[in-house]
Amino acid sequence: MSARSQPGPALLARERPAGVGPGPGPTLPASLRALVRSSLPFLLLLAVWWAATTALHPRATVLPSPAAAARAAGPLIAEGILPDYATASLKRIAFGGGLAIALGVPAGLLLGSNRLLSVAFTPFLKFFQSLSGIAWLPMVLVWFGFTERTIQVVILYTALFPIVFNTMTGLRTVPPRLADGLRALGAGRWRLVTDVWLPGALPSIIVGIRLGIAYGWRALIAGEMVVGAGGIGFLLFQSRSFQQTARIIDGMVVIGLLWIFLDAGFLRPLERYTVERWGLVQR
């Protein structure tokens, strides 16, 4: 699909060579132009939102104006609530997600290393993956109470199963002939692991990590709503109790921004780096 999008920019560049811009004014640098283009939809959304609130005058508890939402963000930031809660949520996802990766990848590799093991555990892993950590929340609350640990357990549980499952399937889908080929050339067991099995399974492992962290992030928001020990989810829920819709919207924007930050700052680089570095691209 990238093949089709490539001609676009190339054609544009040919039609309008550097320095021969349409007007006499200074041309924007490419990066700035990309920024303007990608922020345009959001400005448009803001305009629609603004127009809707000025034309329809909904109650502030139903839909506050963009200005009101921006005003509500002021004290949230000034009082340090928003930075504190955002940090709390990020720390939780980093800890829970990191632990899920550290436990899930080795477990998946172990299960994937043997055909019978992977056959036996496929329905089991599918079953527990579909049981989101959120469903376990009341049970975990009974075990650990309204504490930090409850949230951690829910994130860990939610992120763990997609990671184990995808690591296992990734390992099983590496064509055996690749290992046979290397073995025929005299490679040892360790060499097979580092040169065939791990790189072959890597794309699938990364998919599992992305999915696990994405599920974990949502479970975190839900967990914070219910447990109430700080965090962005708690901010949203508390604001609902006090009918502060502007704060709810601010919280949602922060959730979106944090996820984009997590995705662009961690998950995508991880994907690019590992798959490019060690990945075994199949034709």
Binding site: P41, T61, V62, I248, G256, D263
Partner: peptide, 26 residues
């Protein structure tokens, strides 16, 4: 498509659970 894709990817980042409080208000 170019206009809506960035919006769709932002809203899928906030989708679901984060809308619960607002959905209750509405």
């Amino acid at each position: 498509g170019d206009l809506l894709l960035p919006l769709a990817s932002f809203f899928s980042a906030v989708s679901g659970i984060a809308w619960i409080p607002l959905a209750i208000m509405w």
